[in-house]
Write a protein that binds this DNA or RNA. Structure first.
Length: 837
RNA sequence: GCGGGUGUGGCGGAAUUGGUAGACGCAGCGGACUCAAAAUCCGCCUCUGGCAACAGAUUGUCGGUUCGAGUCCGACCACCCGUACCA
């Protein structure tokens, strides 16, 4: 074997062999135990970035490891190919979104191939393939039949200059990103999926996902946001005291009802709308509420504004107390019933509102220190406590008081205890071209009519223009004009397309089974599902993962698939980061524009900024492809796995990849060594080898690749230092196998050179001899008052009193004790002795 | 604003889940080999004081529980992710 590992030739050779032999094509009919390893499929943005490399390397190591452990592994790849960037490219460069996307896919596929991932490319598809989105349309119609789809008005960001809907991302500081116009909310009729029908199931299902990160389950739980509260009605009166009907409110704090000082309704609440009909001032205020975008962060942080309607609401427990009714910009029509009562002393938002409009602030829950009705603290008290100034509730704790108010409201017939979820139905309408057409037609006579299944897929027209803003489907001359399948009269197609989250809500099912005539085959898909290990960025912790969970449950609900949870195991990996650089005049600079701290083009010194996520805007990206050219796939893979724990950020560094490359070469020299055939024993080395095998296996299964790497270094170090022996030869053979999932090209090359049979990709993971894992000696720490003073080498399992006696006999201990008698001695077997003096 | 997370040497991190803090790697320093360099190999490497033995300090900050805290509890600080039309 040559002195150096020639990565470039080895990479190409083995990638070709794996391709030709279809080594990683999963067999639906295998009788081996099945394992589905999946990484979140990429959006074809142009080129592979380091985040992809890291994500797919992790999944690849696990997939290869499971193959070596006798499993039939499904490890597929495809493309999340619909989305806004393709339309942006179309507008900026005059290309077709489809062509742009296809080109990107070709580039990125070639780049992925060069990293030697053990992927089943036979199952590849892109979500923009009509074969895929046609089946998605079929699923949409199944959901429609099952009553899980409906249409209603909902607000979008509206750019009044470009006359177009903007994504939240396209609103910058309240203005449209192209026109610069102030964005406003506008209501459109849009399609929704009834995810709230599954709120309870999606919540309780989290309990079964024990192989999900706790943080993701928590985030989803809070997102679904189940709360118990009271829905009740205030009698509504005008200024003259005449009854004007009722206003219904929802609250999670019925206990604080005696602290109420106002009622607030949303700007689009029917009461607000009714008053506005003949009051210009109210109308103006409601118009004012429409300013700005639709994001929660914007709504929550904007200035709290209210408009006093002049109406009052009668307190249900006190007919003499009248609460002013406001229209407020912070009340959302989408949550609860679109109206709340304000308790300034015990809700921070209400507190700010009351302060601004000089409404009473009355304490009704004691914080333990104060209980007078006058409230003079700087902020609301929202903690637990005992009710005060609340008539019959006085003396109760918060929970008891909630129950008491609900009981009385129900008895009095003016309210009921209700469960409300924060989760809102999934708005799936997008006023855009590059997405799955929603397979509905609108007929004047018949209303919304589903496209007949035989007419699927509803394909996107190719001849579209992006010269002007707005949805090209809407202004296409012919595409939307059809005959109603029900009555035959002229009708129009729905021109909204589906949210791309719909595409990614079932792609993992299509990977498992992809017949031509239906979205998937139930029995085949169920063989693979749920996905055993799903890996991707934590930024998807809520939306994508919740939508996919919902979609799967909806399929189960309509009997198409008997799987409740799509992803049994989830792992969220960290980002790849890099230093940022700025020129002397404040421009971002890419690493390539700098040499030795000097900007090459100007000769000016460069400022090194913070380490941040690689992004085009900060110019701190490193293109993986030239790195692979220079160092080979294995070095890149090794670097991606080393050092940083996978769930944390990984800082890309030149030193890091250099170090990985050096280790690859060292490994090559080491495992390339044929060994001397020496029969001698080296029990210590044998122990290290077996421990390493066990430790690496556990680390890979636990996706703790940095630990696996550290263990492999330890074994490599031990083998290098060892004298020739049969155990050394065995350790080398072991080392080769355990690095195979991480550096597969090098491993195949050595395996072949050493005359190994077949591919190392198909070889079994080494067996562990349990006897090699036990130690007969242990090092015991000796502490005085918890401070380490000495260590003792003792036989494993030594009796407590022996350990104690030896510890007390230690010279160092005697010196520290200075003749004082120990008060107490704590002995932890095989671990430590702590002398309390 | 709200929800979630992270914080340990010069750097990335490890720590048997309450029991010897700093494994392993990177960088650095010293040495070997070489005419020289690269590569490789050997050694040192948390900080402070000390020639050393050794002593003291140290896991974002402050406080608490415990024989013993990186790990548990409370308060705070900084940064990151998400916030429903970016994917």
């Amino acid at each position: 074997m040559s002195q150096r590992f020639n990565a470039l030739s080895a990479d190409a050779r083995w990638q070709r062999v794996w391709d030709e032999r279809r080594t990683f094509a999963a067999d639906d009919h295998s009788n081996k135990p099945k394992s589905y390893v999946l990484e979140m499929f990429p959006y074809p943005s142009g080129r592979i970035h380091m985040g992809h490399v890291r994500n797919y390397t992790m999944g690849d190591v696990l997939a290869r490891f499971r193959r070596m452990n006798g499993m039939e592994v499904l490890h597929p790849m495809g493309w999340d190919a619909f989305g806004m960037p393709a339309e942006n490219a179309a507008m900026e460069k005059g290309v077709h979104p489809g062509g742009w996307t296809r080109d990107n896919i070709a580039t990125m596929k070639a780049q992925l191939k060069r990293l030697g991932f053990a992927l089943d490319w036979t199952r590849e598809f892109a979500t923009c393939d009509p074969e895929y989105y046609g089946h998605e349309q079929a699923l949409f119609l199944k959901f429609y039949e099952a009553g899980l789809v409906y249409r209603r008005e909902s607000a979008v960001n509206w750019d009044p200059v470009d006359m177009t809907v903007l994504a939240n991302e396209q609103v910058i500081d309240g203005r449209g990103w192209r026109s610069g116009a102030l964005v406003e909310k506008r209501k459109l009729n849009q399609w929704f999926l009834k995810i709230t029908a599954f709120a309870e199931d999606l919540l309780s299902g989290l309990g079964e996902l024990k192989d999900w990160p706790e943080k993701v389950r928590l985030m989803q739980e809070n997102w679904i946001g189940k709360s118990q509260g009271l829905t009740f009605r205030f009698a509504l009166n005008d200024a003259a005291g005449t009854n004007e009907g009722v206003v219904e409110v929802y609250t999670t704090r019925p206990d604080t009802i005696f602290g109420a000082s106002f009622v607030a309704v949303a700007a689009d609440h029917p009461i607000a709308q009714a008053i506005a009909a003949n009051d210009a001032a109210v109308q103006a205020f409601i118009e004012d509420c429409k300013r700005g975008g639709t994001t929660a962060a914007e709504l929550e942080t904007q200035e709290k504004k209210g408009f006093d309607t002049g109406l009052t609401a009668t307190h249900p427990f006190d007919p003499f107390q009248q609460l002013p009714v406001y229209i407020a910009n912070f009340v959302l029509m989408d949550y609860g019933v679109g109206a709340v009562f304000g308790v300034p002393a015990h809700d921070q938002r209400d507190f700010e509102f009351a302060t601004k409009y000089q409404l009473p602030i009355r304490r009704v829950v004691s914080d333990g220190a104060k209980d007078a009705p006058e409230f003079d603290d700087a902020e609301a008290y929202t903690g637990p406590g005992i009710l005060v100034n609340s008539h019959f509730l006085d003396g109760m704790d918060v929970e008891d008081a909630k129950r008491e108010v609900i009981t009385r409201a129900e008895a009095g017939g003016w309210g009921e205890g209700t469960t409300v979820f924060r989760l809102r139905d999934w708005g799936i309408s997008r006023q855009r071209y590059w997405g799955t057409p929603i397979p509905i037609m609108h007929c004047d006579g018949c209303g919304a009519v589903p496209v007949p299944t035989a007419q699927l897929p509803v394909k996107l027209p190719e001849d579209v223009s992006f010269a002007i803003p707005g949805n090209p489907l809407d202004r296409h001359p012919t595409w939307k004009h059809v005959d109603c399948p029900s009555c035959g009269k002229p009708a129009v197609r729905e021109t909204d397309t589906l949210d791309t989250f719909a595409d990614s809500s079932w792609y993992f099912i299509r990977f498992a089974s992809q017949p031509d005539d239906k979205p998937f085959d139930k029995a085949v898909a169920e063989q693979w599902l749920p996905v055993g290990q799903y890996i991707g960025g934590v930024e998807h912790a809520i939306l994508h993962l919740l939508y996919a969970r919902f979609w799967t449950r909806a399929l189960q609900h309509i009997g198409m698939l008997d799987v409740a949870e799509p992803f049994a195991g989830l792992f969220t990996q960290g980002m790849v980061t890099h230093e940022t650089y700025k020129s002397s005049d404040g421009r971002w600079l890419s690493p390539g524009e700098i040499e030795n701290g000097i900007e090459v083009s100007t000769g000016q010194p460069v400022t090194v900024g913070r380490i941040e996520k690689m992004s085009k805007s900060k110019k701190n990206t490193i293109d993986p492809e030239p790195i692979v050219d220079q160092y080979g796939a294995d070095a890149v893979r090794w670097f991606m796995l080393s050092d940083s724990p996978p769930e944390r950020d990984l800082e890309w560094s030149e030193n890091g990849i250099e170090g990985a490359w050096r280790f690859i070469q060292r490994l090559w020299r080491l495992v390339g060594d044929q060994g001397g055939g020496d029969a001698g024993e080296d029990i210590a080395l044998r122990k290290v080898a077996h421990r390493t095998v066990k430790g690496v296996a556990e680390a890979i299964e636990g996706l703790q690749f940095n630990k696996a790497v550290a263990l492999i270094y330890t074994l490599a170090n031990a083998v290098e230092k060892a004298q020739p022996s049969g155990d050394r030869d065995a350790a080398l053979a072991t080392l080769l196998r355990i690095v195979a999932p991480m550096v597969p090209h090098l491993a195949e090359e050595v395996w072949a050179a050493r005359g190994g049979e077949g591919l190392i990709a198909d070889v079994a993971w080494p067996a562990v001899d349990q006897a090699m894992l036990v130690d007969d000696e242990v090092t015991i720490a000796v502490q005085v008052n918890g401070k380490l003073r000495d260590t003792l080498l003792m036989p494993k399992g030594v009796a407590k009193d022996v350990a104690e006696a030896q510890a007390l006999a230690s010279e160092k201990v005697i010196r520290v004790l200075e003749g004082k008698a120990p008060k107490k001695v704590i002995v932890v077997p095989d671990r430590l002795v702590n002398i309390v003096a």
